[in-house]
C-alpha cells in the first residue's frame, strides 16, 4: 500500500495538540516524515514512522526521521504490545485494505490511537453523489478509477465502528480549512481527528 500524499499540514496541529510532550509515537504510513518532524519539534516526541514506499523511506532518512520500512497491511508484528504512547494513522485509514486489523493493531502496540481521515459525509460529497457522480474535492482529489482510497467513511461511520469494536473515543475534532467545526460536523467538516483507546 502506498500512502496517499498528505494534503498539507491541515491535521498536523490538531494531532500535535493531542500528543503529550516527550511521549513516544509511532506514525503509520508516515510518508516523508513531515508529521514526525513536526511532532519532534513541537512536542519533543520520540518518534518512529512506518512506511512501505522506497521514495518515502529515503525522504525520511533525508529528513532525519526514524523510519521502519514495512507493509502496514501485514500488521505490526515487529512491534511489541504497549510499546508506544500513541500510534497515529494520519489520512491513511481510508487507503488501508485491512482497516479493522490495523485499528486493532494500533491499540495493541499503543496505549492510544489517533486517526485522521477525510469525512465522506461532507455536504459536497453528498451533493456530488446525489448528482450521480463519485465525489471529487480538495480533500478527496481522486477519480473513482485512480483513487487509493478503498475504505472511505463518514464521521458517524467511524463512531459506529468504534462502538462496535470495543473502542472508547477520548476526543473527536472535526475540521474545515483547519478550523474546528462544531455545528453539524458530519455535514460541514472535511477532516476528522479521533483520539481513542481500548475499552477495558
Amino acid at each position: 500500500m502506498i500512502t496517499p500524499a498528505r494534503s498539507g499540514r491541515s491535521d498536523f496541529e490538531a494531532i500535535a495538540a493531542r500528543v503529550a510532550p516527550g511521549s513516544s509515537v509511532l506514525d503509520l504510513g508516515c510518508g516523508d516524515g513531515q508529521l514526525l518532524d513536526y511532532l519532534k519539534q513541537q512536542r519533543r516526541v520520540r518518534g518512529y514512522g512506518v512506511e512501505i514506499d522506497d521514495a518515502n523511506v529515503l525522504a525520511c532518512v533525508k529528513n532525519g526521521v526514524n523510519v521502519i520500512q514495512s507493509d502496514l497491511e501485514r500488521g505490526l508484528a515487529g512491534f511489541d504490545a504497549g510499546t508506544f504512547d500513541y500510534v497515529i494513522l494520519s489520512q491513511t485509514l481510508q487507503a488501508m485494505r485491512h482497516t479493522e486489523d490495523i485499528v486493532m493493531e494500533m491499540l495493541r502496540v499503543g496505549r492510544q490511537g489517533i486517526v485522521t481521515f477525510p469525512n465522506f459525509g461532507h455536504w459536497e460529497s453528498r451533493l456530488q453523489v446525489m448528482a450521480g457522480r463519485m465525489p471529487v474535492s480538495q480533500a478527496l482529489p481522486y477519480q473513482w478509477y485512480d483513487t487509493p482510497n478503498v475504505h472511505l467513511c463518514t464521521i458517524n461511520d467511524f463512531e459506529a465502528f468504534c462502538a462496535s469494536h470495543g473502542i472508547r473515543v477520548l476526543e473527536r475534532v472535526v475540521l474545515r480549512n483547519g478550523r474546528p467545526v462544531t455545528l453539524l460536523p458530519n455535514l460541514l467538516g472535511t477532516l476528522a481527528v479521533f483520539r481513542f483507546e481500548k475499552r477495558t
Binding site: S24, R46, Y48, D54, V57, C60, V61, V65, N66, V67, I68, Q69, S70, G78, F79, D80, T83
Partner: peptide, 20 residues
C-alpha cells in the same frame, strides 16, 4: 528485523530499509 525490534525496545534511533 530482529535487530530493529531490539533497538525499538530500547527506543534507540533506528531507521530500517528493506531493499527489493
Amino acid at each position: 528485523r530482529e535487530i530493529v525490534k531490539a533497538l525499538l525496545d530500547n527506543r534507540a534511533d533506528v531507521s530500517y530499509a528493506e531493499i527489493d
